[in-house]
Design a binder for these strands. Structure first.
Length: 424
RNA sequence: GGAGAGAUGGCAGAGUGGUCGAAUGCGGUAGUCUUGAAAACUAUUGUGCGGCAACGUACCGGGGGUUCGAAUCCCUCUCUCUCCGCCA
């Protein structure tokens, strides 16, 4: 969430920026500022009353010690009234803070000045399109048919074991998954990201920390018995490593990468978009996360975009880079770049990575801060993350684009990982 | 799953009802000394909120209670450790 301080100091700027996200914040920010005044007022009163009470309690203690029990008991009489008003003021204070917090949670992150206006995905800006879209042979088929033909992904078996959206990879299909995961992790590690293996199930506090809760509750699988959630992305456990942490300024940049299975309920999805590997309930992804000094987060974002681009290039896939418009930028992001690869048989661009700078929006909830030597108080750090990369759509494009009458060709960079050059 | 013990500042660890935001040690930072370093010595060293500041206030795992007053007593939740059981 946005910080109160930011909203107070940059009210008009925030309202203007949020219009790019098609969010009219005029009323809500006005309410917040009024509520905060109220909060301050009740705080001052409460503190004064508490101070009075503390003083009185000390006095009573001294009176008892010096044997003046009568005076002490007389003083006790006075505390009742103070107690009542403390209870009352505390209640006001708590409900005001609660109300304030609820409102703050409703405001999306302010977009970066470079985010174009727009309602939805059609208005995203194509920054560049690279690579050659292959001309497939006459018998070319989409990946879900290739998966069956070469017996590498079994959707029906996944169906039997679990349900739709939980495919079973087998043989060279399974090896290809493992190869991609290792390839991505190795490349990320070479780029300075420390590898972690996080829990795949998180508690409520972590869900709140990265913003999946409360609003996206329905998108996560919930283990009600233990009140835990299956992670929709490694971003959740990895970013929560740094919840309630105060970093030293010289710790920046903090860079982590993690492979994880990801679980998404995808409630409301249906139809041709979910065919084959295009949209799954369980899929594999390698994620990169960075924590940065506020002055350097956009530089870091650029670096992350370049890194992801390098991965796609090594896989020899045709791709394009999109700068998301206000309407398509997520609630929590300030600036997002999407990578899409072209899947030649279904003739579709498929999103394979989303690289975002969240600025201080996630940090504010996480209470992730940093402190420099000359700083009196800690400040919020900036968080960034990106997929590097999500597997299923990469696999879809690899299968479709590289199909030949002899079999499916594996890109050179992956061969050391698969141990074979052809799926046949 | 059963029985017991515990959770205090960056770390270790004292504190069992009043002046305790909390002893002490280690660590960190700054300084003195030194050619430099080490050692020694001196000072300083948590976070939130309000305040220009002085200062006030809250925080001793989370929540609730008792009390004029709670780190300290009670209830509850979570987590950790030890032993037993079960088991990858």
């Amino acid at each position: 969430m946005l910080s109160l301080k930011y909203l107070q100091e940059n009210k008009d700027e925030a309202i203007k920026a949020l219009k790019i996200k098609n969010f009219d914040a005029t009323e809500i920010i006005g309410k917040i500022i009024v509520l905060d005044e109220k909060r301050k007022e009740s705080q001052v009163k409460l503190d004064a009353t508490l101070a009075e009470m503390n003083g009185l309690s000390k006095e009573i203690g001294m009176l008892f010690k010096s044997g003046k029990a009568d005076e002490a008991n007389a003083a006790k009489e006075k505390t009742g009234e103070l107690k009542d008003s403390i209870a009352e003021l505390t209640a006001i204070q708590n409900s005001t803070i609660q109300e304030l917090n609820d409102l703050l949670l409703q405001i999306p992150n302010t977009p970066h000045s470079s985010v174009p206006a727009g309602k939805g995905e059609n208005e995203n800006v194509i920054e560049k399109t690279c690579g050659i879209i292959p001309k497939l042979h006459a018998e070319a088929i989409p990946h879900w048919e290739l998966a069956k033909k070469y017996n590498i992904i079994d959707f029906e078996l996944g169906n039997k074991i679990t349900g739709a959206g939980f495919p079973l990879y087998r043989g060279k299909g399974a090896i290809l998954q493992r190869a991609l995961i290792n390839f991505f992790l190795d490349e990320n590690r070479k780029a300075g990201y420390e590898e972690v293996i996080p829990p795949l199930v998180v508690n409520e506090a972590s869900g709140y920390g990265t913003g999946q809760l409360p609003d996206k509750e329905g998108q996560m699988y919930h283990v009600t018995e233990d009140n835990l959630y299956l992670i929709p992305t490694a971003e959740v456990p990895v970013t929560n490593i740094y919840r309630d942490v105060i970093l030293k300024e010289e710790d920046f940049p903090v860079k982590n990468t993690a492979y994880s299975a990801c679980f998404r309920r995808e409630a409301g999805s249906y139809g041709k978009d979910v065919r084959g590997l295009n949209r799954l309930h369980q899929f594999d992804k390698v994620e990169i996360v960075q924590l940065q000094h506020p002055d350097k987060s956009y530089e870091a974002l650029e670096g992350m975009v370049a890194h992801v681009e390098g991965l796609i290039l090594k896989l020899e896939l045709p791709y394009r880079l999109l700068r998301l418009c206000g309407g398509d930028t997520s609630f929590t992001a300030a600036l997002t770049f999407d990578f899409e690869v072209f899947s030649a048989a279904q003739e579709k661009w498929l999103e394979v990575s989303s690289v975002s700078n969240f600025e201080a929006y996630q940090s504010n909830r996480l209470k992730l801060r940093y402190k420099g030597k000359d700083m009196k108080k800690p400040e919020l750090a900036h968080t960034l993350n990106g997929s590097a990369l999500a597997l299923p759509r990469i696999v879809a494009a690899l299968l479709e684009n590289n199909q030949t009458p002899e079999g499916i060709r594996i890109p050179e960079a992956l061969v050391p990982y698969t141990g074979f050059e052809l799926i046949d």
